[in-house]
Design a protein around this nucleic acid. Sequence first.
DNA 1: GATGGATCAGTGGCCTAGCCAATAGTCCAG
DNA 2: CTGGACTATTGGCTAGGCCACTGATCCATC
Lengths: 237, 237
Amino acid sequence: MTPKASAELPTPLTRTRLYEQVAEQITAWIRQNGLEAGDRLPPERELASRLGVSRATLSQALVALEVVGVVVVRHGDGTILTGKHSESRIVEAIRAHADRMPEIIDIRDALETKIAALAAERRTEDDLAAIDAALDTMEEAITHGDRGVEADEQFHGAVTTAAHSDLLAQTMREIASLIRESRLESLSQPGRPRNSLNGHRAIADAIRARDPEAAAAAMHAHVEMVSDVALLRGQER
Amino acid sequence: MTPKASAELPTPLTRTRLYEQVAEQITAWIRQNGLEAGDRLPPERELASRLGVSRATLSQALVALEVVGVVVVRHGDGTILTGKHSESRIVEAIRAHADRMPEIIDIRDALETKIAALAAERRTEDDLAAIDAALDTMEEAITHGDRGVEADEQFHGAVTTAAHSDLLAQTMREIASLIRESRLESLSQPGRPRNSLNGHRAIADAIRARDPEAAAAAMHAHVEMVSDVALLRGQER
DNA sequence: GATGGATCAGTGGCCTAGCCAATAGTCCAG
DNA sequence: CTGGACTATTGGCTAGGCCACTGATCCATC
């Protein structure tokens, strides 16, 4: 490498572990042969030699697959498929889809509407303060010409916290990365941040007034507004 | 199988792997010493001897922790904490809570209400047939004095399928085990299965009529009915 | 005929020992 | 002060081996 390369270097070069490659080869092999739940993998010794790795490495790969829930390894018996594949990860299963925006909208609508309603019922004064703070942050961001992506997330995060439901919060966190993408698209539209802020205000007011139905309605309208953008973008393709 | 032994045997006795114990010891050690993101674990050789296991086994444990996202292992450098702990798994985070029923109700309400509405919009004739089949199964189960737990799951599964949203389906699957528990409790109440079946019928009718709002309302009422049981049980404790 | 014990082959669990490869720090030459 | 070489430390992976568990089979016993 010589001087000029001041631009971005290709990659931090993520090193792949052997066990990862082995795990992928195994799952690929499973798909190819159309194996299903209950089917057996070959014995470790055989599989290891077939893959050209040591039994220790294969064992690591199996541990990984077991943790993810793809297989269950039974002492003295063998390694059995669970048919779960990678169902555990919500996100990855969806990422493959090209036109996944509508689905994200659906689930946002489902979760956030409920969250808004719960927040209206359960919010404390502290929760309210956090929500207001997020509104101020967004106000300021927009005034400075920023899109307010972070402030947007801050707001929704504050509302989620106010709902006081670990399960809902956890689930939101699970799909956070997907939602983030839709946010970016939405807030990139000219004039959209302002609209979004107004939506937030309506939601905040309903939560302040402890009115679950109004909060749900406001959140629903807000998500719908975002969906316009998404659908529009879907047509562009 | 001989007739008499119809009682339940103690347990299928789940065997614990050494690497699992090691992984737990490590996480426990992390908590005890209040280690945070960026902190290092001791070298493998040392850690292995301190824990009294071989390096190979310790390595398996680290693979498991790496897959879950607790640590990142860097060749030639060491093992570094990520501070993520186990945020990825929705379920486990909640299992710890003693009184988690209300939260399950909340998220069921959020997801299934939306799912019902979508099902009403998008259902095909095949979807409808599957839903009706589930109703018949439950009808029969109840007539035979069964609680109809499986038929209940079959129905909700059919509705979820009819919603044609992979993301929602995925999320439902993610919390399926939690919901299953709440189902068991609900359907164990005398007279409850019959009530539940009526609720299902109302939902099915709305979906058949392609009426999203009615479907959502019916599903909401259905989930509410279940929640009565749950809350009642919460007071028992 | 059914039950229960012994046996045996196949399979995973775990270990020891060792070499290879990457990293980061140090020191030295230019 | 920069760049290269060296070195200690650390993880990556392999080989080979013993032990424990599982399931099937056979056989003695009741």
